[in-house]
């Protein structure tokens, strides 16, 4: 089994706990983030590096997009984190609290140097930038475009809210602007847009509501705080059976229109235009990747 290409869910696995690192590979998250930062105490940073290296380099789950979250860009741990993380050959390195494009370029150069020494194709390691401050949100477009390595921006709501002096709420109005900043930056750069965590993992109804909004806004996926959230989030970022049916009807109608040389194609009383066609193709591509639909023949 190989990775589906979808990035609907990313789950953090704490780099201090071998049990959690092992179990995390068996949940249904699309992206697994091995963490060196928040879940690891300062005195255990070295131990976590050894553990995460072993897990990613030699026991990498074949069906997941694998990331390593390194410590803060101005922390004393970063340099050694990068030395390890690049060599572990994850799909991407996840950078906490990115605020300037310049920071991305600096890390990019370091990664290139390590890739070269280690005999890894230069450019292979992707970057996910966490946007978790007002400054990061304002500079999101430049950050997204700072390096071809940047494959996603991910919103970190807790720190962002703190930087704004706002109160975190379930409705999420306090992060609405940041969400749109991140989303727009990602769409302009053609990369994946990752929504912030929904903190109360006991509240399934709240999570559903949150997902309805963020999926509607256009996000591709979401960081989850607990394995229990994975199935719900995956489902929310997958096309529904109705969406798949509609997409198929749109494409069938277009094909038929082409065969009959009809100028205008109409489905359910609406004219099928380019954006509608594009949306239908995206839905089917996602459905295929999620195993919800198979091409005939």
């Amino acid at each position: 089994m190989t990775h589906s290409g979808l990035k609907r869910t990313s789950l953090y696995a704490g780099g201090s706990s071998p049990g959690k690192l092992l179990e995390a590979r068996f949940y249904h998250e699309d992206c697994l983030v091995y963490d060196l930062e928040d879940s690891v105490a300062p005195a255990e940073k070295d131990a976590a590096r050894f553990l995460v290296y072993q897990a990613v380099r030699w026991h990498r789950p074949p069906d997941k997009y694998v990331l390593i979250r390194v410590n803060g860009l101005y922390s004393p741990y970063l340099e050694e984190d990068l030395e390890m993380a690049v060599r572990a050959r994850p799909d991407a390195i996840r950078l906490p609290k990115v605020e300037h494009a310049e920071e991305v370029r600096r890390i990019d150069a370091r990664i290139s140097a390590i890739e070269e020494t280690a005999g890894i194709a230069v450019g292979q390691t992707e970057l996910w930038c966490n946007i978790e401050s007002a400054l990061g949100a304002v500079n999101a477009k430049e950050i997204a475009a700072a390096s071809p390595r940047v494959a996603a921006l991910a919103l970190g709501a807790e720190d962002y809210t703190a930087s704004m002096g706002a109160l975190r709420s379930k409705a999420g109005w306090e992060i609405f602007y940041a969400r749109m900043q991140v989303l727009e930056a990602c769409r302009l750069a053609g990369i994946s847009a990752q929504d912030a965590v929904f903190s109360d993992f006991q509240d399934e109804a709240g999570l559903r509501e949150d997902l309805t909004m963020t999926r509607g806004l256009g996000f591709d996926g979401k960081t989850v705080i607990h394995p229990r959230q994975i199935d719900l989030v995956n489902a929310a970022f997958s096309p529904t059976p109705k969406e798949i049916r509609n997409a198929l009807r749109v494409l069938e109608a277009l094909e038929e229109g082409e065969r009959n040389h009809t100028g205008v194609v109409v489905v359910d009383g609406s004219m099928v235009d380019k954006p509608m066609e594009r949306r239908a193709r995206t839905v089917l591509a996602q459905a295929k990747a999620a195993g919800l639909w198979k091409e005939e023949g």
């Binding site: 179990e23 068996f26 949940y27 249904h28 607990h226 394995p227 229990r228 199935d231």
Partner: peptide, 8 residues
């Protein structure tokens, strides 16, 4: 969570 996942 592992046992919950198996149960599901």
């Amino acid at each position: 969570p592992r046992d919950l996942q198996i149960a599901r």
